[in-house]
Computed example of a mutant assay.
Amino acid sequence: MKKITYRLGELFCGAGGLALGAKSAHILNHEFDCSISHVWATDYDMSACETYRRNICPDNPESVICCDIRQLSFEKLQSISPIDGLAFGFPCNDFSIVGEQQGINGTYGPLYKYGVTALNFFNPQWFLAENVSGLKNSNDGRAFDIILEELRNAGDGYEITPHLYKFECYGIPQARHRIIIVGIRKDLDKIFRVPSPEPYKNVDVSCRKAIENPPIPRFAYNHEFTKQSQVVIERLKYIKPGENAFTAKIPTQLQLNVRGAKISQIYKRLDPTKPAYTITGSGGGGTHVYHWSENRSLTNRERARLQTFPDNFIFYGSKESVRKQIGMAVPPRAAEIVFNALLSSLLDIQYPFIPSNIIAVKSLFEGTHYTFNESNGEYQV
């Protein structure tokens, strides 16, 4: 039996959703014992780094570098350990369908370039990049073209497979749709194929099962209940499972005074028979996800359940920081599925797969010329 361990480095690591999925991925048969091990990670959020250290690498806390990536030394990371794989869920703020949608020209949009720079510097055998579904349409689709092209041409060149995953189709109790781009270095002559959701079609993905089976102990970590105001409690009494503050029949005095766009997740109750709607990491009143029968928002531990974090995964920091860490994470169970498919691809092991739903042609720039304007820091056609 051949033992193979791929050393993983991670940028924008957050609390460790991708890392936990990578650590859980494992191929074991009569030929191979193949796994992924953490060697270093970095993020700018101190609380997220502490969560990562204590859950992912408690015996090697120094391997997590808390630093703004714009001041990060790749040489320092290289001195910790060389890597075989790189993972990065680059900041999604500017690509989200909620917000100003500045895309590649926003504050956070250009940060994907540090992933490209890391691929050029480390030239790992493979990479996995993750972002929100809005990335595909950002800047009228041009941002996605640019990102794919730069990832493809980084290092010694990569065969890339982008795909928009609907995690609820993979046994995750949450309607969370994310783009994951997997790249395998061209000289390895391997192609990643998108794992099929077929094996998970009979999995109960209801939020009731995720939250209640097994029950969460009252004094579990990160299970503090929010003290709801009386107005919110009264409002929730009129909202049925699956309804929100704008679709429910609420008395005039309890209605929200909102003009313009009405976000469907405001004071929205979960439907216990269905997957949860997307757990987010930020947002004001009414965005905290609401229980289907109790007149309250979910606790952080309940949100973590919907994100498939195990109960022994403890989050550190303030209550709002923990909420952010959970909402920004990749569901570990979903990450494990993708990483297992990646390992199988590298080992030429067959598994059920489907065609990618995103076409990544050989040259996305044919007939179109993109330039970077240094005076304003924006890409232009």
Score class of each variant (00 low, 15 high):
T278Y: 04
V182W: 02
I160T: 03
S229I: 01
P217V: 02
L11R: 09
N93Q: 15
A175S: 15
G284M: 09
N29G: 07
S318H: 00
F365C: 03
G109A: 09
G14W: 06
C207A: 14
N357Q: 09
A48Q: 10
L364G: 14
F192T: 05
R296I: 05
D189H: 14
R53W: 08
Y238K: 04
I337P: 11
V116H: 09
T161G: 01
C67H: 04
S81V: 11
T107L: 11
N93I: 14
P199R: 06
E320W: 03
I239P: 05
Y200F: 15
Y158I: 10
R259L: 15
R235Y: 01
G157C: 10
A87G: 15
C169A: 11
N340I: 00
Y158N: 13
Q265Y: 15
Q78N: 15
I160A: 04
F144I: 02
W126P: 06
N222P: 03
N312A: 00
C67Y: 00
K274H: 02
E50V: 06
L236V: 11
R296Q: 07
I80Q: 06
G115F: 12
I216Q: 08
T278K: 07
G141A: 11
A129I: 08
T273E: 15
E374V: 13
I147E: 06
Y351A: 00
L306Y: 02
Q255E: 15
A41R: 08
Y221L: 09
P331N: 12
N93V: 15
A329M: 04
G141Q: 12
I326H: 10
A329V: 05
L236E: 12
E320P: 01
L8Y: 02
I80L: 13
G285I: 05
Y277T: 08
A245F: 10
R333Q: 12
M1V: 11
P217K: 01
E100M: 13
S81M: 13
C207Q: 07
F95P: 11
E50S: 12
Q255D: 06
Y170R: 10
R305P: 05
T299H: 06
G285K: 13
L151W: 13
C169W: 04
G17M: 07
H288L: 12
F192Q: 04
F192L: 08
A129R: 00
F372Y: 15
F372E: 03
A304Q: 05
V205P: 04
A261S: 14
P215Q: 11
I326N: 08
N312P: 01
L148N: 09
S282Q: 14
G327K: 02
F192W: 08
N93F: 12
S96G: 04
F90L: 08
R235E: 01
T51K: 14
G327Q: 02
N60V: 10
T308Y: 01
E234S: 15
A87F: 14
R70A: 13
Q350S: 13
I211R: 03
A334Q: 06
Y200V: 00
G242V: 00
P331G: 10
R259G: 15
N295Y: 12
H30C: 10
R152T: 11
G283Q: 04
